[in-house]
Design a protein around this nucleic acid. Structure first.
Length: 814
DNA sequence: AGCACGCCGACT
DNA sequence: GTCGGCGTGCTC
């Protein structure tokens, strides 16, 4: 029997599948998904590895044998191996990173070498010490007692001690022992349960109350709880373990060990939201999905529901029916939506059959959630991106809420897209995928139009409240009329009347990244790339305008090429400035500012939103983070301060993002009894995106946008692959990028791929390193991706080249 | 990553 | 001559 294994924690050079023989003694335990220890390399260093397949033949001769099985736990199965292999191929990541993303974080064995001095050192050894300065130093240090290899390296502050230590061991000076330790493990907690019956207990309490009051207290507590953790018992009874031990000796109680699983998000059980009945429209949508789940038909639905159409009720109904069918559900939401309110809502339907995964869990908590899922203790997983890997077996449905959000794309290796992973797993498990959004990705809607997705629609709001009335304000006029403020006269009027009526206002700034485009405040002209139709970015260091796709360069403007105005400059407003100007205009208004600076912690995010909800403020100023599913009944006015900020960024998705943002933020207004208004300030009032967004007309937006994408060959008509090269040495970095570029060019036919020039990365210097990059526009094909992977493997094995990172369909290109 | 091998200059 | 520096290449 031969095992195919992938080594843990190694470089790209060793990221291969290795074969090891399985000895008779390990046959029982070795299986796919089992963690093993294998001897590796010339020195047969012990290395942790995962078994990914079992075979009976290998093209390699003289196979080594698996040395040990770490914990005989089957972490994954055949399907997960397939998934990992898919990721390696699709995202150019390493095998081990693809496997690790399937496992709870931090799982791993740490090997620790400890060096001891031998009792008696042979003549040969003493000679060696005398002749080697380093050996003498090591000898002197170890005289004080044994020391770990790492500590010794640190102490002597030179690396490459391996050879020296090896020699010293060979010559009988020292011995080396290897110990292993787990980085995460179950929390095992001791619990105490009462064995004696109540009669026995009451008589014992009477008997002991005088001579052994502590025992009596313990018994009292135990008779109350019957079963309690040891720590709690000692705390309540105010005593020590010896007292409990004596009760155990008398056969009155028992101490046992229990694997403890902590509850992660605190749920307010007092105020659980009620289950709402589904409207007929919601019922119809839910039933259509449930039919496919029941039939075990693999299908992908695109649920396009306007803001406030009650998509969450539909999800919960679908999940409920899925669980009733004995299947599991995975519910993905953007990280930012994973609030206690949201989780409470799910939990109120499903009690403790839910596991929640989010980024602020500790390693141990993550591990515990993972085990709970794996052991089938829950039916539902709610979580951000990585929850798509939840180790369920019989998955009925994947629900992806707000599918247009870029949080579903991982920025770290493996740079996966959770929607693609959901679809892959859905294929394996014959499950249904639901992608839902008020503003679906253009790519998704295209697939729906092609019939690859089944389109579902929710066109009206739940309580039949109307969508807000929108108004576009032309900021160019404001300037000619002498208003140099960031607020238009109209917006100021509306804010004032809202304050008078005691209604709340949201001021939204669709700011993104830090790139700055150049525009004319007088006529609205924006400097764009003639080749790529994206805005040019002003580069301060060279004083020029640059295209981030094709590296087109243009000199900077001092006057506007359209209207000769001198008000052409790069455009940027921060939330701070908005909040400040508001306070100056309305000194009596209570203002809350929310952006990445003020809400670094989840709790402060919550706190701000709650105080706004409780009407402790009149105006909320914020960025993207305030657009997510918030439901404030008293908000009747939404002001979009500068719609152009997201419209003119250097990205082909700029229009789409702007449409999403405007739609989502406008949707925040008028959710209660009162109707809402939205004011959109822009320098481009004729822009189609702004117009369609103001009308909340997704279909028109989509029709325009898909035409443009087709014309310019942007997704869904192509894929982008971004290659980034990093090195301390500028010329090595540039050369690697160019060599790589040339090789790709030579293997991919021009009709399959368009290669953009090698250029400085948008962030050229990062952590003291230089960064070059190039983009490839291509179509996915197995062959082409394999060719790229081959080139990548060749380069990443070389020590003298720079670090290479590949990102398929990146969401940002920094 | 680590370890060996192999090729160079600087010493006993 | 030999020790140790580092560049290269391999690890089932």
């Amino acid at each position: 029997l031969i095992a195919e294994v992938v080594l843990n924690s190694f470089s790209k050079a060793t990221d291969k599948i290795y074969h090891y023989a399985v000895d008779e003694s390990h046959k029982e335990l070795v299986d796919i998904g089992v963690r093993v220890i294998v001897p590796f390399g010339r020195g047969n260093r012990m290395q942790e590895a995962f078994v990914i397949a079992l075979t009976d033949q290998s093209s390699f001769e003289n196979l080594k044998s698996i040395a040990d099985v770490t914990d005989s736990y089957k972490y994954f199965g055949k399907k997960e191996v397939e998934l990992a292999k898919f990721m390696v191929h699709r995202y150019f990541c390493s095998y081990i990173s693809a496997i690790k993303v399937l496992l709870p974080t931090g799982l791993g064995t740490v090997f620790k070498k400890t060096l001891h001095l031998c009792e008696s050192i042979p003549k040969e050894g003493l000679d060696y010490i005398e002749h080697s300065l380093r050996a003498e130093k090591v000898y002197e240090i170890l005289k004080q007692g044994p020391m770990s290899y790492d500590k010794l390296t640190e102490e002597l502050s030179y690396s490459g001690l391996g050879t020296l230590v090896g020699n010293m061991a060979k010559k009988g000076i020292i011995t080396v022992t290897e110990t292993t330790s787990e980085t995460v493990s179950d929390t095992i907690r001791k619990r105490v349960c009462l064995l004696a019956d109540s009669e026995e207990v009451s008589s014992a309490i009477d008997l002991m109350s005088q001579k052994a009051p502590a025992r009596a207290r313990c018994l009292e507590v135990l008779s109350d709880f019957r079963d309690i953790s040891l720590a709690e018992l000692l705390e309540i009874a105010h005593t020590s373990k010896s007292v409990v031990d004596s009760l155990v000796e008398r056969g009155m109680a028992q101490i046992y060990e229990n694997i403890e699983r902590e509850d992660i998000i605190e749920i307010d059980y007092e105020n659980l939201p009620p289950k709402n009945m589904l409207t007929p429209a919601q019922r119809k949508v839910a039933d259509e999905v449930i039919r496919d789940i029941k039939d075990g038909e693999q299908s992908t639905f695109l649920l396009n529901g306007v803001t406030g159409s009650g998509k969450t009720e539909v999800y919960l109904d679908i999940i409920e029916k899925t669980v009733a069918l004995g299947k599991k559900a995975i519910f993905l939401v953007p990280e930012i939506s994973l609030t206690p309110q949201m989780v409470s809502r799910v939990t109120s339907w499903f009690d403790d059959r839910v596991a929640v995964i989010h980024s602020s869990l500790t390693r141990k908590q993550r591990f515990e959630q993972w085990k709970k899922i794996k052991e089938g203790e829950v039916d539902i997983v709610v979580g951000a991106r990585s929850a798509v890997f939840a180790p369920f077996e019989n998955i009925g449905v994947f629900i992806v809420d707000e599918e247009h959000e870029n949080t579903y794309k991982s920025e770290f290796s493996p740079k996966y897209n959770a929607v693609e992973i959901a679809k892959f797993r859905a294929n394996q498990n014959s499950s249904v995928v639901i992608l839902a959004s008020a503003t679906p990705l253009v790519e998704s809607m295209f697939k729906a139009q092609q019939g690859k997705y089944k389109l579902l629609e929710l066109t009206s709001r739940v309580n039949n409240s109307s969508l807000p009335v929108t108004e576009i304000v032309d900021m160019r006029n404001e300037m000619t009329e002498g208003n140099m403020s960031i607020f238009s006269t109209r917006l100021i009027e509306e804010i004032a009347s809202n304050l008078d009526r005691g209604e709340q206002t949201i001021l939204f700034l669709n700011r993104r990244g830090f790139s700055s485009f150049v525009s004319c405040r007088s006529c609205g002209y924006v400097a764009k790339c003639p080749n790529c139709n994206v805005s040019l970015t002003y580069h301060k260091s060279i004083g020029k305008l640059v295209c981030h796709y094709c590296d087109y360069v243009h000199r900077s403007y001092t006057v506007c090429p359209e209207c000769s105005s001198k008000y052409i400059k790069h455009f940027g407003i921060g939330t701070q400035r908005v909040a400040q100007e508001i306070s100056e205009l309305f000194p009596e208004a209570r203002v809350i500012r929310m952006d990445a600076d003020t809400t670094s912690q989840r709790s402060s995010h919550e706190k701000f939103l709650n105080s706004f909800k409780n009407h402790e403020a009149d105006i909320l100023v914020g960025t993207q983070m305030i657009t997510k599913g918030l439901d404030f009944k008293n908000v009747t006015l939404v002001g979009i301060v500068a719609a152009d900020m997201s419209l003119n960024v250097d990205d082909y998705r700029a229009s789409e993002r702007t449409f999403d943002l405007i739609t989502q933020v406008v949707g925040r207004a008028g959710r209660g009894q009162l109707s809402g208004r939205a004011i959109i300030q822009t320098y481009n009032p004729d822009n189609e995106t702004i117009l369609t967004a103001a009308n909340q007309d997704y279909d028109s937006f989509y029709t325009d946008e898909i035409e443009l994408r087709k014309l310019l060959i942007y997704p869904p008509f192509c894929e982008f692959i971004n290659f980034v090269f990093t090195s301390e040495n500028k010329s090595i970095c540039y050369r690697t990028a160019c060599d790589f570029h040339n090789e790709i060019k030579s293997v991919l036919s021009p009709k399959d791929a368009i290669l953009y020039k090698v250029s400085e990365a948008p962030i050229f210097r990062l952590n003291g390193k230089y960064r070059y990059r190039f983009l490839v526009k291509t179509r996915y094909s197995k062959e082409n991706y394999e060719l790229i992977a081959q080139i990548y493997a060749k380069y990443s094995g070389r020590k003298t080249s720079s670090l290479i990172s590949i990102d398929v369909n990146p969401t940002n290109m920094y």
